[in-house]
Design a binder for these strands. Structure first.
Length: 120
DNA sequence: ATTCTGACA
DNA sequence: TGTCAGTA
């Protein structure tokens, strides 16, 4: 892992900043975490701390949700890609992964146009 | 001042 | 999902 990736994985953003950057509400950020879509680090005071990779992931989650996917579907799609589930050192953010995300989103988006409740 | 968890007149 | 409560 190069320095750029390491820096991207450094978690320092509080919920307020993360909410501003993603367009999501703190309520949603906490809900998504409880559901297992994201795993932000915690400060010594138990405060959530998001990294740039988390922001990137959250933006993708937002897109998937907007395309009418359920959180369970989003979770399954995201689990196919690399992203440290429990720890926080291995994250993704390259163009290759983005391309896959984009295709998945369009494909499932089309599915939902025909069948709104089909598990991927 | 901010965030956290749990809960719902 | 919003929001209020009681903390840390």
């Amino acid at each position: 892992m190069n320095e750029k990736q390491i820096r991207r994985s450094i978690a320092i953003l509080p919920v307020s900043s993360t909410a501003k950057l993603t367009g999501l509400t703190p309520r949603q950020l906490r809900y998504y975490e409880k559901f297992g879509l994201v795993h932000p680090c915690r400060s010594q005071g138990n405060q959530r701390l998001y990294s740039l990779n988390d922001i990137d992931r959250l933006l993708d989650i937002k897109e998937y949700l907007d395309s009418k996917m359920t959180m369970a579907e989003v979770k399954r799609v995201l689990s196919k890609h690399s992203y440290a589930d429990k720890a926080h050192q291995t994250n993704l953010s390259d163009s290759a992964a983005r391309k896959i995300f984009s295709n998945e989103m369009l494909r499932i988006g089309r599915w939902n146009t025909h069948d709104s409740n089909n598990i991927y």
